[in-house]
Design a protein around this nucleic acid. Structure first.
Lengths: 202, 202, 202, 202
DNA sequence: GATGAATGAGATTTCATTCAT
DNA sequence: GATGAATGAAATCTCATTCAT
């Protein structure tokens, strides 16, 4: 009711995106209304449309922010130093970031792909880029003699799945787990597989 | 236009579910309208509501059918026979099933979780059950001395991710691949990890 | 509130167009809302959109109906019979039609051109066709030796103006006049001036 | 962006009206937004409302300016000198003025009447005044024995239509023509038909 | 059982106007 | 006097659902 005090447009925009993330994370894209977002931001309806063309547009902004957050959690690997710890850090960084997002992650996992063709494409490109990075890393590893022969394309998306699925199920089934445990599990699997060495003790 | 000839209610129901699967797969839950479904089934609007309470209800029916299809693709493991080939068959069965579904799989991957809390729960239970089965298998494997120590809960969802992610990306990015390649990749990873043995040749 | 009894779609459509004509005539396109139209027709909002895609669309339907009405008021001239009375009848028919339309005529005179480019074009084509008919009539008249030399294009639109302006001012200034008076006036002007005196000298 | 330098209020007002005329002429009243006007004038939104109470108000200002322009193009007739050339000059002046206005004329022809009752009234008065002038001229002509008997009221608006319609169609159908041709056409029609032949029989 | 016209709550979006700085 | 962020009433349009035939 009281008129929101005018503030720097960039701040207002950021505030709206933040409110929107909250709302989308909680209710999902379709159940969320612009009304929820402006309530969250304490702003009038018209103000919203001064900053975003549509509900779809602010969703895209939220999505971009989330994707950026994940990307920023990954540091380039320096091959002149031991590789494993760096990979471990990156893995840990991404998982922590996703866990921190909490319900926000459902936007990346579920909502974005279910809205329209453009959403699918955005997400497809994002995961494509991620897979691409893993793929290149695998090839480098092969060149360095660390990684064995395999179909790098498929292997890359398998590895991505290794990371995503536990986080996704954490969301769906509201189970909590800690990032270190997951990183350890992934490392042990990638490091030596699942099978017990026929007779390790022998 | 022409009045649809009265048919056995079960057939009509099946016909509607089938049309609905098609429509949901193609357009997604929200973009799909009841109009699309009845057009697909060649039935009047009122008829639809004689068989289903709501759009949400028929979606649930479609979802159930799909989940059932996946479950049916998995045979129980008979521990008195060699295990690996049986696991391989199951894996192959599930992947083939998902690939056959084509766009229908997006319902399982994306749409179902994005509709409402109930959808999330349904899917959570489904994946929970799948994870549970894998978990039990792992434990059995450990008992038999085939599988080494690990956090079976996390490992189970990791393994599920190994399978889902490539299929999901196939959908998102419209890449095709064949089921055997994926099964091989998964098996090689699970079998011995990703690293090249220090000096396998020695 | 009470549910409108289902009727033949064509009738419903006609009823909506009729209500819309009334509303547009009274309030003008922009001041009129879909709410006014459905109130007029005693129908729910959704019903309106079962029949017309948009407010703009039903306006077009109204416009077409009005234009058709005017066109139908004009009979082709039969040159084997005396021409003047036929022209007089046509003139009288058009003027009467416009006067009967009452405020509806403002749609043709004012609203249609002020809505969008398409409205302007529709109206442009309509008046273009009218002018074209007059033009052809003039040329025929010239061939028959009844009409003297002139710039038929300009003359045609002048003649159209002769008819339109009094009707238009009748609308704007809420003056009433009768069709016969106008036809007489036009005839006296055109008759004395446009026709070549058969044999002025004789 | 840059703060507009303070200028003489009358100039600012004129600047706004000028920008508004441009905008209204191009887009029409309803499609034009206050945003377009202030963009055109290079002025902030708030500034606009320092000078005009509303969009409607500045439209009225534009309208008044245009009507004045037309009125000023007409010189009083001096009956002690030959009348025809004076009439011709006035006709030519008005037509030229309207043609110069270009799209601006659509404001007079179309937009003004389509806005609200007040717009209709304003325009009604304007055309009423014009018709009135023509009417008085006709009566004077009758007194001088130059013009024959007729219903001067109707005849006056007919004559006005003679002039307006070609210009209007020029707008609607984007045809160009020159003022002289139209004046000639009108004169030939009126001259041959309206004037009593001085002594046809003698 | 089948039909399809009718419904109406509710969502998104627009834009002229206000007012604190 | 100039500014421009904020406002919010009001309009259009959607579509799952109802119900009389």
């Amino acid at each position: 009711m009281a008129r929101a005090r005018p503030i720097d447009p960039d701040s207002r925009r950021a505030q709206l995106v933040s409110a929107a993330r909250q709302v989308f994370a909680t209710k999902g894209y379709h159940a969320a209304g612009v009304a929820d977002i402006i309530d969250g931001a304490g702003v009038a309806r018209g103000t919203f449309y001064n900053y975003f063309e549509s509900k779809r547009a602010i969703f895209q902004a939220v999505l971009n922010e989330l994707m950026e957050g994940v990307v920023d959690a990954v540091a380039p690997i320096d091959v002149t130093r031991p590789v494993a710890p760096q990979v471990r850090d990156n893995l840990h960084g991404v998982v922590s970031m996703l866990l921190e997002m909490g319900d926000g992650a459902r936007i990346l996992f579920t909502d974005a792909a279910g809205i329209d063709a453009e959403g699918m494409e955005t997400l497809g490109e994002f995961y494509g880029a991620a897979t691409g990075r893993i793929e290149r890393a695998l090839r480098t590893g092969q060149d360095l003699g660390l990684v064995r022969e395999c179909d790098v394309g498929l292997m890359a998306s398998c590895l991505l799945g290794l990371l995503k699925e536990p986080v996704y199920q954490g969301l769906l089934r509201r189970r909590v787990f800690d990032a270190d445990g997951l990183v350890d599990t992934i490392f042990s699997l990638v490091g030596g597989g699942l099978m017990r060495p026929p007779d390790a003790a022998a």
